[in-house]
Write a protein that binds this DNA or RNA. Structure first.
Length: 484
RNA sequence: GGCGCUAUCGUCUAAGGGUUUAGGACGCCGCCCUCUCAAGGCGGUAAUACGGGUUCGAAUCCCGUUAGCGCUACCA
C-alpha cells in the first residue's frame, strides 16, 4: 500500500478561516492516525488576491493550533517548492504534454468576447460554456498568433458525451455529464496556472494519496478527474467535507460573526477548545465523549465517519468547551497567562503576589470560561468598587447595617495576618455579639468590598484583597451607601 | 436557469431495517446544595421536512416533492 500523504492547500488571501482550520485539522488527524505525511502547500496563483504576510500568518496560526506539518514552506521537504508561484515552470511544462496530446489547446479569444458569448447563452437560458472556437485553429494560425503576441489562455479539451464518475469517501459515487462541463482554463493569460491545473499537477507530483477538502470543490472535481486521466496519472482518493455554516445556514462568512482563527485567539479562546469544537463539526466517534485533546482526536478520528450535511458554527458550545478546557489547565499555566495580562493592565490595578493570584484563580475557576473573565467578572480584586449594585443595596443594606459593620470592623481590626478562616471566625463572633444571623453581615460586607452581589466565597475575597484593603472598603461603603 | 450536494430536538449529533415510548451534548427551564453568583448533582423541554413505495417491520432502502446550500470566472 502506498504511503498516505495529505495536504492542506490554502490560498494566502488573508487570515486562516475556521472552515480552513477544520479542513486542516481533518487532514492532520487523518495523516497522524495513519502514519502519513501532512503537507502544507500555498496556492497563490491569483496574483490579484495576494495579501502580504498572509503566508507567515497562516503558518503562525497553524502552529498556534499545534497542527504541525511535515513538509511545506519554511520547513522544506522532498517535493518542494511548496509555494505554487515558485513552480510556474512545472505547470508550463506539464501543460505542454497536454497540448501535444490534443487534450488541451490554445485559446486566443478575448475576455470580452467570452463574456458576450456567456451573456448570449444566458439570455436564451442555455448552459454557459465556451464554444471550442479556438480548437478549430490550424497549427499555422496558432504559430502566427503566438508570434504576434496575442494574449492567450490554455484550455482543457473536454470530450462530449462522457459520464464522469467521482468516487468520494464521504459522498459515495457521484456522476457528472461531460456535456455540461466547460473547457476549463488551465493557464491564464498572465502565464499563471488556474487552481484546477496547479492543484492537480501538484497533488500528483507531491504524491498526495487523499484529497480532503471542502464541499465547494465537489462540482469541479470532474474537471480534476478528467485532468488526471488526460495526463495518464492515477487519481487520488477524494473526500469532500461538509461546509461550515452561519446560523442562517449559508456558507460561513464574515458579516455574521468572527471567521478568522485569529479573532478567536485574540478573544481568549483556547486552541484546545477551538480544535475540539471544529473537530465535532461534522464528525464524532459515536461514543458519548464530548471533550477531546488533540491526541485523543488523532486516536479516534476516522474519515469514513465524517457527516455529509453542513454544520452550523454555534458559539455557545464553543464557549462551554472553552470552560471545560480551561478547567483542565493546571494553575501554573493559567498563572503565567494571567501575569502577562496583568502586565498590560492599568497602573492603578492592585499587584498581587503569585500566591494571591493563585488564590484568585482557584476562586474563579468554576466562574470563568475565559482567563480574561478574572478581570471582567471580578474586577474588584484589582480595583475598589466605584459604585454599588442598587438591587443588592435595597435587599441587604438596612438602616442598622452601618452599626453592625462598625462592630465587625472592630473584630477584623484585631486580626493579625488573617487567613480566610480567621475572617470567618471574626465574622461569626461579631454576629453572635450582635445576636444576628451571619447573613446580615455577609451580604453587606460582600457588597462593600466588591460592589456586587455575586462572586466567590466572601472569605476568599477578604483574604485575597487583604485586611487593610478590606477595612478601607468597608469604611468607605459605610460612608457612601445610604441605608434603605 | 443548469448541475451537484444535503435533510433527526433551536444548535452539534447517536441509532444505518426490528434491541427506539429515537440516545447524548450545548442552550433553556425547574429542584437540590448554598453567604451570593457560579460550579456540581438530579429532573424537565424539544426532532426523524412532506408524499408515495419496498418490507411482516422504515429515522434507516428506493422514487418523487419541497426546502436549504454549493458550484456555474483567465477566484480559490
Amino acid at each position: 500500500m502506498n504511503k498516505i500523504r495529505v495536504r492542506f492547500a490554502p490560498s494566502p488571501t488573508g487570515f486562516l478561516h475556521v472552515g480552513g482550520l477544520r479542513t486542516a485539522l481533518y487532514n492532520y488527524l487523518f495523516a497522524r492516525k495513519n502514519n502519513g505525511v501532512f503537507v502544507l502547500r500555498i496556492e497563490d496563483t491569483d496574483r490579484t488576491r495576494y495579501v502580504d504576510g498572509a503566508v507567515e500568518n497562516l503558518i503562525d496560526t497553524l502552529s498556534w493550533c499545534s497542527l504541525d506539518f511535515d513538509e511545506g514552506p519554511q520547513k522544506g521537504g522532498m517535493y518542494g517548492p511548496y509555494i505554487q508561484s515558485e513552480r510556474l515552470d512545472i505547470y508550463k511544462n506539464t501543460v505542454g504534454q497536454l497540448i501535444e496530446k490534443k487534450k488541451a489547446y490554445y485559446c486566443f479569444c478575448s475576455p470580452e468576447s467570452i463574456d458576450t458569448l456567456r451573456k448570449d447563452q444566458q439570455n436564451v437560458n442555455q448552459q454557459t460554456k465556451y464554444d471550442k472556437r479556438c480548437l478549430k485553429l490550424t497549427t499555422q494560425d496558432i504559430e502566427e498568433k503566438l508570434k504576434s503576441g496575442i494574449p492567450y489562455v490554455v484550455r482543457l479539451n473536454i470530450e462530449s458525451d462522457q459520464t464522469v464518475v467521482v468516487d468520494d469517501i464521504i459522498r459515495g459515487r457521484v456522476e457528472f455529464d461531460s456535456n455540461l462541463l466547460d473547457d476549463q482554463v488551465l493557464i491564464k493569460s498572465d502565464g499563471y496556472p488556474t487552481y484546477h491545473l496547479a492543484n492537480v499537477v501538484d497533488d500528483h507530483l507531491m504524491e498526495i494519496s487523499h484529497v480532503i477538502r471542502g464541499e465547494e470543490w465537489l462540482p469541479s472535481t470532474p474537471k480534476h478527474v478528467l485532468l488526471y486521466d488526460a495526463f495518464g496519472w492515477e487519481r487520488p482518493i477524494f473526500a469532500h467535507l461538509p461546509l461550515l455554516l452561519n446560523p442562517d445556514r449559508s456558507k460561513l462568512s464574515k458579516r455574521q460573526g468572527d471567521v478568522a482563527v485569529e479573532d478567536y485567539r485574540s478573544k481568549g479562546y483556547l486552541k484546545e477548545a477551538l480544535i475540539n469544537f471544529v473537530a465535532l463539526l461534522g464528525w464524532n466517534p459515536g461514543t458519548e465523549q464530548e471533550i477531546f485533546t488533540l491526541s485523543e482526536l488523532v486516536e479516534q478520528f476516522s474519515i469514513d465517519a465524517v457527516n455529509k450535511a453542513g454544520a452550523v458554527f454555534n458559539i455557545e458550545k464553543l464557549n462551554w468547551l472553552n470552560f471545560e478546557h480551561l478547567r483542565m489547565k493546571p494553575d501554573a499555566e493559567i498563572l503565567q497567562i494571567l501575569k502577562e495580562q496583568i502586565d498590560k493592565s492599568p497602573p492603578d490595578y492592585i499587584r498581587y503576589s503569585d500566591e494571591k493570584l493563585l488564590a484568585i484563580i482557584q476562586a474563579m475557576r468554576p466562574r470563568m470560561s475565559f482567563i480574561k473573565d478574572i478581570f471582567e467578572k471580578s474586577q474588584y480584586f484589582f480595583l475598589p468598587p466605584s459604585d454599588y449594585d442598587q438591587e443588592v443595596i435595597s435587599k441587604h443594606w438596612k438602616s442598622e447595617t452601618p452599626e453592625h459593620l462598625k462592630i465587625l470592623l472592630e473584630e477584623f481590626s484585631k486580626l493579625e495576618h488573617p487567613k480566610k478562616e480567621d475572617y470567618e471566625k471574626a465574622l461569626h463572633q461579631a454576629a453572635s455579639m450582635l445576636k444576628i444571623g451571619n447573613g446580615k453581615l455577609i451580604h453587606p460586607v460582600r457588597l462593600a468590598v466588591s460592589g456586587v452581589g455575586g462572586g466567590p466565597g466572601l472569605y476568599d475575597i477578604l483574604y485575597i484583597i487583604g485586611k487593610e484593603e478590606s477595612l478601607r472598603r468597608i469604611k468607605k461603603a459605610i460612608e457612601r451607601i445610604k441605608p434603605q
